[in-house]
């Protein structure tokens, strides 16, 4: 009854923390982005309600950040459930923790960026509608930050 050094009983702890941090930090970023751009939309729509359709875009983009975290969390949770406590190595746990933190903190950063850009962009769009194209471009560049985190997380996940 010698416990394998590479498969300790606490190995899944790191994987579980990775899955949790993936969705927690992504949801934190998405919530901040939604709330911050939501205040901008609420202030703008009082005078220009016809622009609501265009102004919803930062909110949708913030929601997508949370889907990145969800995908990685589901991937990690699936691997945890498939391998069980017998086959789940410590290395796998560390990899999963790294993947979760990568997508989580990237999503947090992207959510902050989307919130601030969405707030200012939506308010400015009410005064100058041509700002829309610029706002979309800046939002896409903010969104891509979260996508980079997702790519790194999936790359890490495959190397386990």
């Amino acid at each position: 009854m010698v416990a394998d050094e590479k498969i300790p009983i606490y190995a899944p702890f790191f994987g579980v923390m990775g899955a949790a941090s993936a969705i927690i930090f992504s949801a934190l970023g998405a919530a901040y982005g939604t709330a911050k751009s939501g205040t901008g939309i609420a202030a703008m729509a009082v005078m220009r309600p016809e622009l609501i359709m265009k102004s919803i875009i930062p909110v949708v983009m913030a929601g997508i950040i949370a889907i990145y975290g969800l995908v990685v969390a589901v991937l990690i949770a699936g691997d945890l459930a498939a391998s069980g406590t017998e086959k789940y190595t410590l290395f796998k746990g560390f990899i999963h923790l790294g993947a979760g933190l990568a997508v989580g903190f990237s999503g947090l950063a992207a959510g902050f960026a989307i919130g601030i850009v969405g707030d200012a962009g939506v308010r400015g769009q009410a005064q100058q509608p041509r700002l829309f194209v610029g706002m979309i471009l800046i939002l896409i560049f903010a969104e891509v930050l979260g996508l980079y985190g997702l790519i790194v997380a999936i790359y890490l996940y495959t190397s386990s």
Binding site: Y68, V72, G78, A82, L147, I154, S160
Partner: peptide, 14 residues
């Protein structure tokens, strides 16, 4: 395999 199908499924979802 499980890992490959997971990764491709994630790519398709994104």
């Amino acid at each position: 395999s499980a890992v490959a199908s997971n990764v491709y499924a994630a790519g398709i979802a994104i």
